[in-house]
């Protein structure tokens, strides 16, 4: 459970009269239980690719297959952790974690109280169970958001710059927290980031993307030993990988500063878009 195959996927967005090609002929395979990071400068279509796997958008050309099934829309087999934490502000931490399991679609997916208890403990939020999201720190909020997604036990975890809004110290703690969870539960993870260190530190496989149009530049196997430790970042193997990836991403980012800016796909989305 949890394999993803992306075959010659192209995604175009209509922007007025002209079409913007966000992704151009992308091919990626993600094995079961693999940790894959998508890294690249902003505008390279990495978030678009994640949205396609999640089923929030459909490819213009090509196909995305998850566990032998073509993706038709979002579903609880693919849990998404958003950059802007998706916690319901009117619910307590506890109720947020229980939300997914209380839906009709997930009935019989396990004892809700038991799962919530375990998630609270695992994320260290037991003492804050009755707090509202607004009363939590950024790191706690993102942990609660991850817990609420893990509660429905998806086989794939899709993460869109989940730690992008956190300060660097909290971010590195969250990375280790995520790795711990992953070692325990061994889900397939696809994580989008523009942080090169993060992309290497977490991944089995880092997919480096280039922009305008979004293409896959290189797929790098990260053969650093697991479990990963923070100190590895200063080891020569890590530094070598980082220099390698940085070279690609930097030249891309510099190119990206010259052409006229285009509206990002995320910004153009709106309520109307989804609710037809």
């Amino acid at each position: 459970m949890g394999s993803i195959s992306i075959t010659s996927v192209t995604k175009r967005f209509q922007a007025g009269d002209s079409a913007v090609t966000a992704l151009d002929d992308v091919n990626v395979t993600v094995q079961e239980k693999e940790f894959v990071t998508l890294v690249g400068a902003s505008g390279c279509g990495k978030s678009t690719l994640l949205n396609l796997i999640a089923g929030f958008e459909m490819p213009t050309v090509g196909q995305i297959v998850v566990d032998g099934q073509s993706v038709k829309g979002p579903g609880p087999d693919r849990g998404v952790v958003f950059q802007q934490t998706a916690l319901f502000p009117w619910l307590s931490v506890e109720d947020n974690i229980a939300f997914g399991l209380s839906l009709r679609a997930n009935r019989g997916k396990g004892d809700r109280q038991h799962v919530v208890e375990r998630m609270l403990q695992r994320t260290g939020l037991s003492a804050f169970r009755n707090r509202r999201p607004a009363e939590l720190s950024g790191g706690m909020r993102q942990r609660a958001a991850i817990a609420s997604v893990l509660a429905i036990n998806p086989s794939i975890l899709l993460m869109d710059e989940p730690f992008g809004a956190l300060d660097s110290l909290t971010r590195s703690l969250m990375q280790d927290f995520l790795l711990e969870i992953w070692e325990e539960q061994r889900k397939t993870v696809v994580l989008v980031t523009h942080d090169i260190d993060e992309a290497i530190y977490l991944a089995d496989k880092a997919v480096v993307m280039t922009a305008h149009p979004g293409r896959i530049r290189e797929v790098i196997e990260i053969n650093l030993p697991r479990p990963r430790r923070y100190e590895m970042r200063s080891e020569s193997a890590f530094i070598k990988l980082r220099d390698h990836v940085t070279a690609f991403v930097r030249t891309e980012a510099m190119k990206g500063t010259t052409p006229p800016t285009r509206p990002s796909t995320e910004e153009r989305e709106s309520m109307e878009h989804v609710v037809h």
């Binding site: 998706a86 679609a105 997930n106 429905i152």
Partner: peptide, 9 residues
Amino acid sequence: LYKAAKMMG
């Protein structure tokens, strides 16, 4: 929030 709820089913 809307997307998250939809994703959860």
